[in-house]
């Protein structure tokens, strides 16, 4: 369990450290993904790790691989080997934030249990949809409902497996030695695989940690993002004052305190100047 401290009043840095600590401990038991059912081979895991870092590189902070993208993908690909399938985490709260106190407009020291570690049973429609997404038309009885009209649907598992195989065929020496540009050139021949890999990498970097990615909440730290905030939220209604108290470190109605942690740089400014000038009016 995370250290239980009232959050209102701690500094922005301290809060991020606190939420990171909470997220790190709240993650499903270490090794859960690798000790459970697996879909990916060792070679596939290595390749996907390189690609995860291609999408979000390692620097002073972790990249996609260190954030757990491969574990995130493994959990999704094996979702149906668990009961209930690991598709939708439960709610309403993780254990990263305390309840508000009954009065005073401050946080309490009471934290909810982490409901995100549990997964929800799927209904008939959700199960049909997710089996089709993961296994494709060939992997579900009767195929997809519109295979005859729109063509069969390829499942995520096959897109990943075939994509890695195609990359290995095209680059027998291994993609780890390619420059980022050369890797992009290879991926451009594998449009479906590239799109899926980027989607899954981004999800795995910035999802709730209970899904297996965003290790230690470090993806959220990269983005200066609080993550889930319930049940505390950013404001607390004080019934004595008949008004709200805002978290001074994450205010709603005023500008953030302190300096901007990472202001827009010249490249971003140039990019958005270009984008804005290309739009009408």
């Amino acid at each position: 369990m995370p250290t239980k401290l009232p959050v209102i009043g701690v500094s922005r840095r301290e809060f991020l450290e606190l939420t990171a600590l909470g997220a790190g401990v709240a993650v499903l038991p270490a090794g859960c993904a690798s000790s459970g059912p697996t879909f990916l081979t060792g070679t596939e895991r290595s390749t996907l790790a390189v690609l995860a870092d291609h999408v979000l590189p390692q620097d002073k902070q972790p990249g996609g691989a260190a954030l757990g993208v491969v574990d995130y993908i493994e959990r999704l690909m094996t979702a149906f080997e668990f009961t209930p399938p690991r598709i939708f985490a439960d709610g309403p709260f993780s254990n990263r934030n305390p309840y508000p106190a009954a009065s005073g407009g401050v946080a309490s020291t009471q934290y909810p249990a982490d409901a995100f570690v549990n997964f929800l049973p799927l209904d008939r429609v959700q199960e049909a949809a997710w089996r089709l997404k993961l296994y494709g038309s060939v992997g579900v009885p009767g195929g997809g409902p519109n295979d005859a009209v729109l063509g069969p649907q390829k499942g995520m598992r096959d897109i990943l497996r075939d994509g890695v195989a195609a990359l290995h065929a095209a680059v027998p020496q291994g993609i780890g030695k390619l420059s980022s540009n050369d890797l992009e050139l290879q991926l451009l021949h594998l449009a479906d695989f590239r799109a899926l890999m980027v989607q899954l990498t981004i999800e795995g970097c910035f999802c709730a940690p209970e899904y297996g990615g965003n290790k230690g909440g470090e993806g959220w730290q990269i983005a200066h993002f609080q993550g889930d905030t319930q049940p505390l939220g950013n404001t607390i209604y004080d019934p004595v004052l008949s008004d709200y108290r805002e978290n001074p470190n994450f205010p709603v109605s005023t500008i953030d305190p302190g300096p901007d942690p990472e202001p827009l740089d010249d490249q971003t400014i140039a990019l958005f100047t270009s984008i804005a000038s290309s739009q009408a009016p």
């Binding site: 939708f88 439960d90 929800l120 949809a129 089709l132 997404k133 709730a208």
Partner: peptide
């Protein structure tokens, strides 16, 4: 009274917990 709804961007916006799935309900 409690709920499954949560501050979970992945579940609500990208895994379509309550939105129709285009593969089977387009």
């Amino acid at each position: 009274v409690s709920t499954n709804f949560s501050n979970d961007e992945l579940k609500l916006l990208f895994r379509n917990y309550i939105m129709p799935h285009q593969e089977i309900e387009p």
